[in-house]
């Protein structure tokens, strides 16, 4: 039971962390509004799931909404700040988060809601592990997302341009890549990842105002994996999910909230660029 919950939580953490990483890779901005995007997308998914009975259609609608929201936030708010210090961009994303949070609470009243997801049957695996169909679906979606992102970065033109921009924005721009367009698309994809994660959180647990805490832990996941490494989020998500669940089960739930940050501090002290991140990151201020 514990193992299953760790694996599912790790899957969701990895998905949440990947949103940070995709955005950071393309634009070198850490999106502090991520938690609020997850909350907003979750509530939207709840409303749509009630309105449209077929859940795949509502999921698609949420993803499209998040994609458009990400691109417009980048185009309207982040892009004009190009050239200012990193601090301005960070505080801007924090302020956007505050605004979106207010919008979410105003529209949805901040109540606890669950996304209805039809069938729930249990499967027994060898080794006395029981997984529900929802947990299988969660793991399937996360795996599919990572496979799609891997193929996207490797084979599509936009994906290759995104990697080039991440490696050296100046050279990429000189080779004719429109880095603003690429960053905009990356923001869209990052927000869509947040929307997907919100959907999975909604079917596994519930959507509430406290969902932001989970997104904050995911932010630790992105850092431990390396802020510019998509692959790094997977082992990092397992580390965080396992330590957190074990602490909550065997020690103290309040320590469970703090333990991701203790791990993060240790990682920052000894290996600041994360498990699989690029080392020269640190020289950019």
């Amino acid at each position: 039971m514990l193992l299953a919950s760790i694996v599912v939580l790790a899957g969701i953490y990895a998905l949440l962390g990947s949103g940070f990483v995709i955005i950071y890779k393309a634009s070198r901005i850490l999106n502090f509004a991520h938690a609020e995007i997850v909350m907003l997308a979750g509530y939207l998914a709840v409303s749509l799931a009630v309105a449209i009975p077929f859940s795949a259609a509502s999921l698609l609608a949420v993803l499209c909404f998040c994609f458009v929201l990400g691109m417009s936030i980048y185009a309207i708010l982040i892009r004009p700040l190009a050239g200012y210090s990193v601090l301005s961009a960070i505080i801007l994303t924090v302020a956007v988060g505050v605004l979106l949070n207010a919008v979410g609470v105003f529209v949805w009243r901040g109540e606890m809601e669950v996304i209805p997801f039809g069938w729930r049957t249990y499967f027994s695996l060898p080794g006395n592990i029981r997984l529900s169909s929802i947990e299988f679906a969660t793991l399937g979606i996360v795996t599919l997302f990572y496979a799609c992102m891997g193929l996207f970065y490797r084979f599509t033109k936009i994906g290759q341009q995104m990697r080039a921009t991440a490696e050296n924005p100046l050279l990429a721009a000189q080779r004719g890549i429109s880095i603003y367009r690429i960053s905009g698309i990356a923001w869209g994809i990052g927000f869509a990842a947040a929307g997907l994660a919100a959907f999975l959180l909604g079917i596994n647990y519930a959507i509430s105002l406290q969902i932001g805490n989970i997104a904050v832990a995911a932010f630790v996941v992105a850092l431990i994996g390396g802020l510019d490494s998509l692959l790094g989020t997977i082992p990092a998500a397992f580390i965080i999910a396992a330590t957190e669940q074990l602490t909550i089960t065997y020690a103290n739930p309040r320590l469970g909230d703090a333990i991701p940050f203790i791990i993060m501090l240790m990682v920052l002290m000894f290996k600041p660029w994360g498990l699989l991140g690029t080392k020269e990151e640190l020289d950019r201020v």
Partner: peptide, 16 residues
């Protein structure tokens, strides 16, 4: 909630 929203808006407007 409106107070929070206005706070966020003021910060965004000042930054831009």
């Amino acid at each position: 909630v409106i107070q929070t929203g206005v706070f966020g808006m003021v910060v965004i407007l000042f930054l831009l």
